[in-house]
Design a protein around this nucleic acid. Structure first.
Lengths: 156, 156
DNA sequence: GGCATTTACATAGCCGACTAACTGATAGCC
DNA sequence: GGCTATCAGTTAGTCGGCTATGTAAATGCC
């Protein structure tokens, strides 16, 4: 656009350009690591919610992951097809679907947590504790700025 | 995971969880803003390359955007269908495709640059210049860590 | 010159994300 | 009781991203 003062042209929207680029590369890396357990990036986040509490409804999962309901429904359907979760209609309220883990789904917990530790290790690289904390704060600020209600932390 | 010291359970892979969440919300916001000119998020990045220099090949565009060739090919095909770019085979090397802008594609430049300024403004929110610089540095570091060769800056 | 290799693009198919629109069940309100 | 509104989940269709694979042209090497 125009900086008007005759200086060198600035890179456009530096942070807006960086965010998608970083996310793409991060997702690709996650995909490479997750492939060895048969998951695609994103699916592990849904499973984490189930490891934390079970059963869950697609609606809850969507809210907690910060995605729209159809996204969660599709992910659940694929995880069901892959044999990691089951679905059943609630008898209390027949609109509600209850998603539960299978034995195979539970068995994924340890390897996925190993992978996530490795992913985080590689993501932060040699950043010190200070930098990591600062980055977390700044990213959280951006998340609020762009209107993300955000995923709830998975820990208690 | 395990923190081993009996403390409260830490949120898993904080930065690895934050990056996709921020990117999703940021993309959604970009999509809302870009909709008014008939673009989907990501397409504007490709157009920016063409505004900077023309014609370009799909391969160049893919490299510069930091995506795989098929992604750029698909995007070009859609932008062509939308009437914003044209494709023609190079006569020098008939494997090469030259992507050029149409008048409609050129007309998008101003509105898109307005939108990008607005997007960046909302993304950084009330972060000061220091925070913005720091965030840019930290994100660049993460990009390198996760193996992103990254998009080249669009400015000279 | 002729054949293998590399290069540039295209295609097919998958997944995650979204919006829009539909179905079925519950809840509310006369 | 019955009609409407709301809510949960699903379906349909699109886009961006990837991997794997295919095709055509140029290059290289003998």
């Amino acid at each position: 656009m125009d900086e008007g003062t005759g200086g060198p042209v600035e890179q456009v929207g530096p942070i807006s350009a960086l965010v998608p680029a970083v996310a793409r590369a991060h997702r690709t890396l996650a995909g490479q690591l997750l492939r060895e357990v048969g998951l695609y990036p994103g699916q592990e986040l849904l499973l984490m919610r189930l490891w934390a509490a079970e059963p869950r409804t697609p609606g809850e999962l969507a809210r907690e992951l910060g995605v729209e309901p159809p996204t969660a429904v599709k992910a659940v359907a694929r995880l069901e097809a892959a044999g990691f979760v089951t679905r059943e209609r609630s008898t209390d309220d027949r609109r509600v679907v209850l998603v539960s883990l299978t034995a195979a789904g539970r068995a994924l917990r340890e390897p996925v947590e190993r992978i996530w530790a490795e992913l985080e290790r590689r993501t932060v690289g040699d950043l010190g504790a200070d930098d990591r904390r600062r980055l977390t704060e700044l990213l959280s600020a951006v998340a609020r700025n762009v209107g993300d209600v955000g995923p709830d932390p998975v820990g208690p």
